[in-house]
């Protein structure tokens, strides 16, 4: 039996996830007409880039066969460091920002080096790093959110300014997110680096035998993921004018959920930015829609977990039916 091109496309996990996403949207619209109101859409788009940017980087890292549990903590530490330096040490905003990013780079570098050179699994390395980084953020702030973060800087507008497009209030972070999506698609699907990332995650030995610097690829991806987390944390803190040491708690799991729901393989080799995009929208839309249709907010996680499981079961069943080992 010869399968047509369409059948092949329909079989892709990201496509079935996209189908479920459409169903979820329809269900929410039926549940509450205001779900598609400009105000609600604007609200969703305001939050979305913060986890979304981390999810894009995490997609690349997962494709290379590793993951990072320390992103939620870096999400907090980066803006906390910056705010402390500005407020308590009187440092200029720009310099403080730079130091905040350097910390993210350092965390990513340590993660990458421990995983590749010492050979500890990324689960263990980044789990430990999650405690270390979160601990530093808590200790540095003595556990309290910092006082309101008022910074007057042109760069801030570039990060979190907003403007109305028709009835929609769009934050600058959304445009950053779009740009990162384009960049991630380019890197993974079109550039030489993307071929290396997929190959390293698929069969590291084969990649190394062909001269691909597998360790360097992974270290770079750890750094990029960590910096993406710091950047997202910064955007978030500037948007709400507050840096909190407990910001981003559990984000690591939500981000990984977004990525795998989209169809990227948890064990590496296969990554899809389109799928991650579906995953990002899925989790954000569920979080928003569930409240809109009147489900108690505390029941949110039940639905998230259930929908993730449904999708993963679907992916697995399709693979079993059509895949060959």
């Amino acid at each position: 039996m010869k399968s047509s091109r369409w059948a092949k496309v329909l079989r892709l996990p990201e496509v079935s996830s996209f189908g479920i996403l459409c169903l979820v949207v329809v269900a929410f619209v039926l549940g509450n007409r205001d779900f598609l109101s400009p105000l609600n859409i604007s609200n969703m788009l305001a939050f979305l880039p913060e986890l979304g940017i981390i999810a894009l980087a995490m997609t690349l890292l997962l494709t290379a066969g590793e993951f990072d549990l320390s992103v939620g903590a870096v999400f907090a530490l980066c803006p906390v460091t910056m705010a402390l330096l500005v407020q308590n040490a009187g440092m200029s905003f720009t310099l403080a920002l730079l130091i905040g990013f350097l910390i993210a780079v350092a965390v990513g570098l340590i993660n990458g080096l421990l995983v590749t050179k010492i050979g500890i699994s990324s689960f263990l390395v980044t789990l430990s790093m999650l405690f270390v980084v979160r601990g530093v953020a808590l200790y540095a702030t003595q556990g309290f959110p910092l006082k309101s973060l008022e910074v007057d800087n042109a760069f801030v507008n570039l990060l979190v300014g907003n403007a109305y497009i028709g009835p929609f209030r769009i934050y600058a972070s959304f445009w950053w997110f779009i740009a990162f999506v384009a960049l991630a698609i380019y890197v993974l699907d079109y550039s030489k680096a993307g071929n290396w990332i997929s190959a390293v995650g698929s069969n590291r030995d084969a990649a190394v035998a062909r001269g691909v610097p597998a360790d360097r690829v992974k270290i770079w991806l750890f750094v990029i993921t960590s910096v993406a987390a710091g950047f997202a944390g910064l955007i978030s803190a500037l948007r709400i004018s507050s840096a909190s040491p407990v910001a981003g708690t559990n984000y690591e799991l939500e981000v990984i959920a977004m990525v795998v729901v989209g169809g990227t393989a948890l064990m590496g080799g296969r990554g899809t930015i389109f799928g991650t995009l579906v995953g990002i929208f899925m989790l954000r839309i569920i979080r928003n829609g569930i409240v809109m249709v009147g489900v108690p907010g505390l029941a949110y996680n039940i639905f998230v977990g259930a929908i993730i499981l449904v999708m993963l079961v679907m992916h697995a069943l399709m693979q079993r039916r059509h895949g060959r080992a």
Partner: peptide, 21 residues
């Protein structure tokens, strides 16, 4: 080598040029 020469998730075309794209 039997099992270590190709990346199973990559297309044939991408495997052919892996490392010297």
């Amino acid at each position: 080598h039997q099992d270590t020469s190709l990346a199973p998730d990559l297309s044939i075309a991408r495997n052919l040029f892996l490392g010297r794209e």
